[in-house]
Amino acid sequence: MKKQKQGSGRGPVEQAVQYYLVRPRHLAGGGDPRYISEFLRASGWKDQSKTGVRLAFESPDRTVRVTYDPFNRPGGWTIQAKATPQQEAWQATLSSHVPAEIVAGITDALTRPRSAHAPNVWAPLHEQRWRTHHGEHVTAISPDGSAFLQFHQTGPGDVCWWAGAGTEHGMVWNATFTSTTPMHLVQAVSTALADPQPVMRPRGHVPLSNRIRTTSVSVLPSQLTAWQQARISAARTATWASNRPRKNTPAAGPYATAGSTHPRR
């Protein structure tokens, strides 16, 4: 796609590109895996990607590994953590259509120090009016009924966290977290899942569903670059600041200066 044209005596002039802001975010499709991988790289994680595995990153302390494999079924994200004196081994698996912005809930959290506050997985969902059902399994369901998070228990010691989303065409994605997954990481996922803010997808990459609402936006390539760089810079700054007490730089919110918007449906 041609992004620049020559202005009369003024050099190259950018051409806006059409994107869509998609709601709800959990039905927006997988998105760009680099949203996750570039943040991990900027946070000091080691890139161990090899042929046959599209992405593979290892934490600086070598206890956690994040991989993304879209080629082999069922494909998607796998996050594995080794046992340590402070934490049992755990694993999370997220299928390839889980939006990158939701996967980033857990991967971004892995790069930050754990909060001193006790985690509450359900709180972010309740704040966004998700309905909670108590029974054999405790389940929170999104207001439109298209997504859920469940504490799934089939027997003594046989428990896990399970999340998923679907449209009128059926299930779109699912994610599971072993019972030993740290609660603050599960809460990070529930926070990203419940976030009412839309996510952005390029033209031709919006799933077909009557449960999706989109808004057309005109975006300059320089804006996209700036948003991407802001996220990467925030990761680098936070990594540098992690060794200095009382300092923290939050990630910049994307799309704050998106171009003209046009409601689509």
Rank of each mutant, 00 (worst) to 15 (best):
S146P: 04
L149H: 04
S146D: 12
G157C: 13
G135E: 04
W130H: 03
H133R: 04
H133W: 01
I141H: 10
V138Q: 09
T154W: 08
D144R: 11
A140H: 10
S146E: 09
F151W: 14
F151R: 10
R131C: 07
V138A: 13
H134D: 07
D158W: 00
S146K: 08
T154N: 10
A140P: 07
L149G: 02
F151Y: 14
S146N: 15
F151G: 00
H137P: 08
W162V: 11
T132D: 03
D144T: 06
P143K: 06
S142Q: 13
H152M: 07
P156N: 04
A140M: 04
A140D: 14
Q150R: 11
F148E: 02
W162D: 09
T139Y: 12
G157Y: 01
G135C: 13
C160N: 13
P143T: 09
R131L: 14
A140N: 09
P156F: 05
Q150I: 01
G155Y: 12
L149N: 03
R131M: 11
T154P: 00
E136P: 01
F151T: 00
R131Y: 07
Q153D: 00
S142M: 07
H152G: 05
P156M: 05
P143M: 14
A140K: 05
T139D: 06
G145P: 04
H134G: 04
H152P: 05
G135A: 08
H134K: 13
V138F: 02
P143V: 10
W162H: 15
F148A: 08
L149I: 12
H152A: 04
F151S: 11
Q150Y: 00
G157Q: 13
H137N: 12
Q153V: 10
E136W: 02
Q153I: 14
V159N: 03
T139I: 12
R131V: 14
H134V: 08
T139W: 07
A147C: 10
A140R: 02
V138L: 11
H133C: 03
G155L: 10
R131K: 15
W130L: 02
P156A: 05
W162G: 00
G135N: 13
G157W: 00
H152K: 10
R131Q: 15
T132P: 04
Q153R: 05
V159L: 02
S146Y: 15
P156K: 03
E136A: 08
S146W: 11
I141K: 05
I141E: 13
L149C: 05
H134L: 14
V159Y: 01
D158G: 01
T154H: 02
S146I: 01
G155C: 05
C160A: 15
W130Y: 15
A147N: 06
D144N: 12
G145L: 15
S142L: 12
P143F: 09
V159W: 00
D158K: 14
P156E: 12
W161P: 07
V138E: 13
W130G: 00
I141C: 02
Q153G: 02
P143W: 15
D144I: 07
Q150D: 08
Q153P: 01
T139G: 08
H134C: 03
F148K: 05
A163Q: 09
H152W: 07
G135W: 08
V138M: 02
W130C: 01
T154Y: 07
D158P: 00
T139M: 10
H152V: 00
F151E: 12
P143C: 09
T154L: 08
E136G: 14
Q153N: 14
G135I: 06
T139V: 15
G145N: 10
W161K: 06
D158T: 06
T132I: 14
G157S: 13
H133Q: 13
